[in-house]
Design a binder for these strands. Structure first.
Lengths: 153, 153
DNA sequence: TATTGTTATACTCTATAACTATA
DNA sequence: TATAGTTATAGAGTATAACAATA
């Protein structure tokens, strides 16, 4: 595992902070998954794009951009690179947008990527009971509701 | 809040994944805190450096680098910039290393930064009961033990 | 020889602004 | 006018390699 911080002997002033605890846990799992994806030539962001297209065939880049929290300006080169690798195809909807879908090669890569994702989940899921997992999902939903509330109100 | 993903109408293939849930929650809180720190001219990384020095006066850069998971090559310019802003001083220990400490200006900035951190925690902590927070801390500890076990064994 | 700190450099991710073409 | 996609560019963060000074 790359870059796991070790607080050997130092006081950790962030230990009680929710945001810091989330960040540490998130970075640990992301680092492990990132390593598992290297041999597939996929980054975490690339993975999210690939699997989101797989789950939503015909999706447009603007929709993808909103769903993944990636600026459309940053999504463009990712999609272009996937197209260049023969992983996705673009079927025109109107003359300014395309519906994205996976090619056979793209579906095959997605299948192998899912396998790595399951390995990653399995490695860490032994730490988390079913109840804890449900709690996490509830926490995330609560966090997002706080945001939506602030933006609308 | 910048870049909060909105899965409007799209299937979310990652919804059940622990790593993805952690990532989403972590990025939400980090984004909020990052905005609160802008007016103090602090990034999240800069904050962690400042507060770690505050909690560990006399710490050397190598120790700081290990504790925060920042390469010493990347810590050097951060520390230099803080010194240039008059926030930290460097007291020589031997002739190749210095003990880092906060100046009066640094302590004042740390005080204001802590206030922003508490605002950030308060905004989201209404989502999390004391029991949930304890579970989260336990989860993080479990995750890290999985890593240490794999590295040693 | 190993350690501490530094410089140089490159790559990824993310952000804004400006642009083209189309609706 | 607004939308879809793209290009250019800049700022963080992080990675490795090479280096000087010191232990």
């Amino acid at each position: 595992m790359k870059n796991d911080p070790q607080n050997a002997g130092l006081a950790d002033p962030f230990d009680g902070l929710l945001g810091y605890q989330l960040r540490r846990a998130s970075l640990l799992m992301a680092s492990d998954l990132g390593e598992r994806l290297e041999s597939l030539d996929l980054t975490l962001t690339g993975l999210s794009v690939l699997l989101m297209i797989e789950a939503n065939p015909g999706v447009r880049q603007t929709e993808l951009s909103k769903a993944l929290g990636i600026k459309s300006a940053n999504l463009a080169p990712l999609v272009a690179a996937f197209a260049a690798r023969g992983l996705i195809d673009r079927n025109p909807t109107d003359k300014r947008s395309h519906g994205l879908g996976l090619t056979a090669a793209g579906r095959d890569l997605a299948r192998r990527a899912w396998s790595r994702v399951r390995e990653n989940e399995a490695r860490f899921s032994i730490c988390v009971s079913t109840e804890e997992r449900a709690m996490l999902r509830g926490l995330l939903a609560s966090l997002r509701s706080v945001i939506l509330q602030a933006e609308v109100g």
